[in-house]
Design a protein around this nucleic acid. Structure first.
Length: 479
RNA sequence: CGGGGUGUGGCGAAGUUUGGUAUCGCGCUUGGUUCGGGACCAAGAGGCCUGGGGUUCGAAUCCCCACACUCCGACCA
């Protein structure tokens, strides 16, 4: 029975069990398959295509701003990893080690990179000698490995794909500017490409990257009102340079330490896309990274001319530069509608005998379900306009979710109350004291997300200790 | 790492309490009829019941041990 089939294929309702809904979507939309190693996943063609599209756009932005891609080894000798004290302490608990080469035990065990700061430093020490060698603007696309205790598709893999930029600069000012520039590239990418609104900000001492002087972040709100860190950009000062003995002769022939940055985003952003935009019918993909932007479906395709008309339509859209596919399989139209909704395809174009008579097609939007009749004369322009409209609407809905679920509070009691009843982000003042930050976590169950770059400058009180202070800060439950 | 749940053809489940050699739906294959919101008919194929030990004449079922997935916590860019 059709009814039974619907039940079997159905995913858990989003508002009933968000975590289960997420897992269902990831599997049913064919993004991920599980493997026999915990925390390691197959990224299936459709899931990997999303990453490839994100990669292409980001890589273009990196190149535009002068960065070059490199590739460094995946193994780090223990002694190298240990050169920066804070860094190794931060990562040691989740390192995986190679101890054998063939049948022989290694002299020194090798860490499978959890991140590559140390390798970049080793390399930079070799190639940076003069102010003329700076800046070095390198980026690497690779996978890293962290032995997480619990794992979830996209959100926490033991091995995940990312990019890590590592740059060296003659001055602190230049390095700080780089850190900010990359944060802005990430923020623009999230908003203009992924339709995900972000809060740009700085992490507290407690939350910053191991070994960094300052960590900047873009924080996103998921549909369940929890926070996801979308990307980070770190300013290292010359700390690593000192630990790794990287020096250069400046213009005055004085030996100096270069100033360093690193920045990264990962496939975790795909988890963010799913949890920001998805609904009870499955995935909803932002048009600019959707592997298939338009799916053409012939209706009553056994009737004369329908398949040819559909193919002509597909060819026109492909010619116009859209990522478009035609599904001429034997499945019923209803099956196909549901299938491509599950996969989050932004636009569906239907063409059947009735449309052919009227020189039109039907276009249905994934984001709001709206169907319109479109004259074939204006097909390309209409599709272009609709893809933008879908993007804008997705962004607006996500922004509304963020705004509607961000609450200004002044006391710890309020913070607790709102977190327990509504969830979402809390915006408060903060005195800067670690004890207050810890208390917030202990009592209200929220961690600091970031101190936004756009500070109000007004004076208020720390919700925990009541001291007068001016720093704005966001709190939330994080992924 | 702590607490719960679950492992049975590709997927979802029944069967486990009261041991007797595996059942159903979906999917898959073939043929036919359909086609504007997960179509229908008919005939087929497909299973070391997560793994390893044990008890027994006999284990999906009972016992022990692993492992995996999943949810909630803790941890964690």
């Amino acid at each position: 029975m059709g009814q039974d089939k619907r039940q079997v294929e159905a995913i858990t309702a989003r508002d009933v069990d968000f975590a289960q809904w997420f897992t269902d979507v990831v599997k049913k939309a064919e993004l991920i398959d599980y493997t026999s190693v915990k925390g390691m996943f197959v990224m299936r063609p459709y899931g990997y295509a999303i990453w490839e599209n994100m990669q292409a756009i980001l890589d273009g932005e990196f190149k535009k701003t002068g960065h070059e891609n490199v590739y460094l080894p995946m193994l780090i000798p223990e002694s190298l990893l240990q050169k920066e004290k804070d860094h190794v302490q931060g990562f040691a608990p989740e390192c995986a080690w190679v101890t054998m080469g063939g049948a022989e035990k290694l002299e020194e065990r090798l860490c499978i990179r959890p991140t590559s700061e140390t390798l970049f430093c080793e390399h930079y020490a070799n190639i940076i000698h003069s102010w003329r060698d700076l800046p070095k603007l390198y980026n690497q696309w690779c996978s890293v490995l962290r032995w997480e205790k619990t794992s979830r598709p996209f959100l926490r893999h033991r091995e995940f794909l990312w990019q890590e930029g590592h740059t060296m600069h003659a001055t602190a000012e230049e390095a700080i500017a780089e850190t900010e520039q990359m944060l802005n590239i990430y923020a623009d990418f999230c908003q203009n490409v992924l339709a995900m609104p972000v809060i740009r900000g700085r992490k507290t001492e407690k939350e910053k990257f191991a070994g960094a002087e300052a960590t900047y972040t873009i924080e996103c709100m998921m549909h369940d009102k929890k926070a996801l860190q979308g990307g980070t950009s770190h300013y290292f000062g010359d700390g690593f340079a000192r630990s790794f003995d990287i020096t250069f002769a400046d213009k005055n022939n004085q030996q100096a330490y270069p100033h360093q940055t690193s920045w990264g985003v990962s496939t975790r952003l795909i988890g963010g896309i799913i949890m920001t935009h998805g609904d009870d019918n499955g995935l909803v993909l932002p048009p600019r990274i959707a592997p298939i932007q338009v799916m053409v479906l012939p209706i009553a395709m056994h009737k004369p001319g329908v398949l040819e008309a559909a193919e002509a339509l597909r060819a026109r859209l492909a010619e116009a530069g859209f990522r478009v596919k035609l599904d001429a399989s034997e499945q019923s139209p209803g099956w196909k509608f549901a299938e491509y909704e599950m996969k989050g395809v932004p636009l569906r174009v239907e063409i059947g005998p009735k449309d052919m008579e009227k020189n039109q097609c039907v276009i249905a939007r994934r984001d709001n379900g709206e169907k319109t009749f479109v004259s074939l004369d204006t097909l390309e322009d209409t599709v272009r306009g609709l893809l933008d409209a879908v993007h804008d609407n997705m962004f607006a809905m996500a922004k509304k979710n963020l705004d509607d679920n961000t609450f200004a509070v002044n006391t710890l009691a309020e913070a607790k109350e709102i977190t327990n009843t509504k969830g979402g982000f809390l915006k408060t003042k903060w005195c800067g004291d670690l004890a207050c930050e810890l208390k917030m976590k202990e009592d209200a169950g929220v961690s600091s997300r970031c101190m936004p770059l756009e500070q109000s400058g007004t004076e208020g009180v720390c919700p925990v200790c009541g001291k007068k202070c001016t720093t704005d800060i966001y709190w939330g439950v994080a992924y």
